[in-house]
């Protein structure tokens, strides 16, 4: 099952990311994961949060441009070779990864979580579950 990530347009200038985090803080949005893609003068903040719709609304109210993007959150074994094993599945299936980022789940040290954006979300998900890997639902993310 894919989850919704929020992608936010940010100018690449001091204080712009903090302006976004202060909006989230003021509205009690908790982030599960964050990644930044940047160019010389702008960037995109990609965030996974507990309450997606609430977060998008408060960001838009504060004049941010925020889009929802489908991504896969995958649980992988928290041990050497865990990621490699998973990437082999994508390689074999000829799936291209547009971007990915990681977050650890300290409550369960046996697992790590990876966020993936691939060229074909549905096909990727099928390949992963076919090989016994677990993709997380929105609810599960909120409860981590």
């Amino acid at each position: 099952m894919s989850i919704k990530q929020i992608s936010v347009f940010l100018e690449n200038k001091p204080g712009r990311l903090q302006k976004m985090t202060s909006v989230l803080a003021a509205n009690e949005v908790n982030m599960r994961a964050l990644s930044l893609a940047e160019t010389k003068d702008f960037g995109i903040a990609r965030i996974i949060v507990d309450d997606v719709l609430h977060a998008v609304n408060v960001l838009k109210d504060a004049d941010f441009i925020a889009h929802l993007t489908s991504v896969l959150a995958v649980e992988i074994p928290n041990k050497p070779g865990g990621l490699d094993q998973m990437l082999q599945i994508f390689s074999e299936a000829n799936v291209n990864i547009e971007y990915m980022y990681a977050f650890l789940a300290p409550k369960d040290l046996n697992s790590a979580y990876m966020i993936f954006r691939t060229s074909d979300t549905k096909a990727s998900e099928a390949k992963l579950t076919g090989k016994g890997l677990k993709t997380l639902s929105q609810e599960e993310i909120a409860n981590i």
Binding site: S7, F9, T39, F42, G43, I44, I65, H67, E98, R117
Partner: peptide
């Protein structure tokens, strides 16, 4: 000013 319509999640596309 960036607009909702012009923005995408892909850095390459925006560039």
């Amino acid at each position: 000013e960036m607009t909702n319509e012009m923005f995408t999640d892909n850095v390459g596309e925006v560039s």
